[in-house]
Structures are given as C-alpha cells and as structure tokens.
Amino acid sequence: MSYHQDLPPKGGYPDVQWKRNLPSRGFRPSIYLAIMGVVSLLSVIPMSKGFRERREYSREKAWARLSLLPLLQAEADRDYVRRITALTKREQELMKDHPDWADNKPVFNDGRSRFPSYVALEATKN
C-alpha cells in the first residue's frame, strides 16, 4: 500500500481573481483637480472686476454725502445756537435769585463748545 501526500497540482494553483475587472472612466483624479483649479483662478478675474465696481459705487455714495455735509452741518449749527441761547436764557431766568450760581460755567477748560448732556425742557402738550 502506497501513500500519496495531497499536494498542489503541477505548476501551482491558478491565480485567484481578487481585483475587479472594470474599465476606468474619465481622467485621472489629479486632472480633475487641475481643471477645478484653473476654473477657480479664471473666475477671480471677473469677480475682482465686480468688487472694484462695488467699491466705485460706495465711493460715489460717499462723495455725494460729502457734498451735502456742509449744508447739513450748517443747518445743525444754527439749530445748536438757537437751542443753546434759549437754554442759557432759561437758566438765567431760573437762577436769578441765586447770586452764587456760576452762570453758564463750562465743565471743561479747553474752551470748546459742548451741548449739555441733560437739558430741562418744558414739555408742551400736543
């Protein structure tokens, strides 16, 4: 009685197919990345043009406001003078019996004009 050891066939077993056998579609991934980069870079040009145009719009608006600024300021100044004069007069009238009242004494010594933070006004019924 002879014994035979179980051995692989002559020349070995055939390869096991572990890899999928599919055709690859499209380009390499790096090419897609490159295309995306180029498109993004090309889009920067019109975008920057748009940004520049927006900046011109805001400059136009700023210069329009600058042209009006002296006019609005002049009107506000006249109103300030009117109100501060009325306030001083009212204060004098109110404090005329108090000789130690320092009339219209400024809080700061820099000589600049300021409107007082709190003003007593007579509320008039509508």
Binding site: L71, E75, D77, V81, G111, S113
Partner: peptide, 22 residues
C-alpha cells in the same frame, strides 16, 4: 463748502463762529 468746513476746523466753538459761512 470748503470755506465753511475750514472755518469749522479752525474754531474751537465752530457752531457760533461759522454762522456767516454756514
């Protein structure tokens, strides 16, 4: 406008001093 704003920037009490220019 330039005259008025210059007067304002030069003065310490611009409201009272620059009424003519305003």
């Amino acid at each position: 406008n330039n005259n008025f704003m210059l007067c304002r920037s030069k003065s310490k009490t611009p409201e009272q001093d620059c009424l003519y220019e305003g």
